[in-house]
Amino acid sequence: MWNLAVEQHAHWQPGRKAAPGFTEQCRQLTQAQAANPWLAAGSVTVQQQALKDHSQAKANFFRRTHRRPTWRRRGQNEGFRIVAVTPGDVRRLSRKVGEVKVPKVGWVRFRWSRAVADGVKSYRVTRDRAGRWHVAFALVPEPLAGPGTGAAVGVDRGVLVSAALSTGELLNAPTVRRPEKARLLRLQRKLARAQRGSNRRGKVKAAIARLKARETDRRKDWVEKTCTRLAREFDVIAVEDLKIANMTRSAKGTQDAPGRGVRQKAGLNCGILGNGWGKLVTRLEQKAQGRVVKVDPRFTSQRCSACGVVDREARESQAAFRCRSCAFACNADVNAACNIRHAAGHAVAARGGPPLGGPANREPQHDGHLLVG
């Protein structure tokens, strides 16, 4: 249904009659169901929600907040949304198992990984690339409250160190383990030898997707726990205002003007995306609403947090920083995090806010259910 809506809008050209909206598409859907029994056999709720999601995606595109809606492919972004959920549509069977009523399907069991809040009106069923089905109940959570002490922290995101705090703590996002890396390499070699379109190739791709899903799950879990901890321990959280989409753009160039250092840039892009830079800040802004300050990232790695002198030669290595003016030395990522916190203090003061305080500011000497049936 989504692809049909995309195709319908793809033929629309400026100057012609306006493309049909959600109401007109629902009327056309009723006519199509009457003419096609196979379409009528599906849930009209699911089909209408697919049209509504596409309509919302188009509105977001014209507001310049999202990209243009594209075709959905098999195995990617598969799922559907159910609305008008009643309390009787979700029930708990045991401590770890629950059931949800899916239209035209019946009761489907899922792993009860967290409590389903009261007042839930909709849920979405999705399938990831590893072949796992998930059900997520829609609910906007309340933001977390800070300690109220005025404590502030600077967070410097990196590749080798996922997040360095101005308190001196270094945090690293979990990744695949050494045995899993070896198995992933074997599977990738096996995939290169498999014939396209064969069943063997499909099984190898599914095995690779399961390994990748483990890494993704661990990174998401680390991001959630880290954001929750920072939101509860600090009243102000300072981060760099980075344009991650531009930073992870490919360097391969074009056939006429090929890029340089393509392999090195690809490795850097993987490191940035693998450490969850964007997800970390997004979840911080959601959990600590109004308490996340974005600062200018320029010279944060070259400025001494003790005397304020900017010296590009002060960073002796990736991890070592030694100021040639005042002889201050510390971890380079921690020094950058301190500069980020200082910049946030200036930004808060410029807005007329109270000075940042608290013991944490001294310079230095961590929602979906899985369907099981």
Rank of each mutant, 00 (worst) to 15 (best):
I237M: 08
A251K: 06
I237A: 08
Q28I: 04
G98M: 10
R210A: 09
G357T: 15
R16E: 13
R214T: 13
C307Q: 05
H54K: 01
G253D: 10
E215P: 09
L184I: 00
V120Q: 03
V295T: 03
T65S: 12
R183S: 09
R214W: 07
V204C: 14
G271Y: 12
L93E: 12
Q365G: 15
V310S: 10
L356H: 02
F234Q: 05
G168N: 07
T126I: 12
G21I: 06
C270F: 04
V155K: 05
A57Q: 12
T126N: 06
A207L: 04
A192V: 08
R157G: 02
F80A: 13
G308C: 03
R27T: 15
L273T: 06
G131D: 05
V293T: 05
R64N: 14
Q302C: 03
A163H: 04
R232G: 08
E169F: 01
P179I: 01
P179S: 06
K265T: 01
H11C: 08
G357A: 13
S301M: 03
F321G: 04
R92Y: 08
R16H: 10
R91I: 07
L371S: 05
G259D: 05
K287T: 01
L371Y: 03
G158L: 02
K220C: 01
H346D: 02
G373T: 14
S162K: 04
L211I: 08
S43E: 07
H66E: 13
H342F: 03
C338G: 12
V239S: 02
E224G: 13
G75A: 08
G106S: 05
G345T: 04
D89V: 11
G274I: 04
A173R: 03
I340Q: 02
Q8A: 12
V176D: 13
E233C: 02
N275H: 06
W222D: 02
A117E: 14
A329E: 12
A349I: 01
T167P: 02
A35L: 05
E224T: 05
A206H: 06
K52E: 13
E24S: 10
R186S: 14
C338S: 06
L170C: 04
D128W: 07
V309E: 13
W38N: 11
V293G: 01
P14T: 05
G368S: 12
R68M: 15
R218H: 07
Q318S: 15
Q47K: 12
R291F: 09
C307L: 08
R229M: 07
A336G: 05
D128E: 09
E142H: 13
R312E: 02
L29A: 14
Q47S: 14
N331A: 06
V310A: 12
R298Y: 01
A50K: 12
H11F: 00
L93I: 13
V140S: 14
L191V: 14
D128L: 03
T45V: 14
N77T: 12
G271F: 07
E215W: 01
Q33D: 10
S55E: 10
Q56T: 11
E99S: 15
V309W: 10
C338N: 03
S94P: 00
L268E: 03
V293M: 07
R111V: 06
F62A: 15
E7A: 15
Q188F: 08
C323W: 00
G148C: 07
N246F: 01
R193T: 13
N339A: 10
V159P: 00
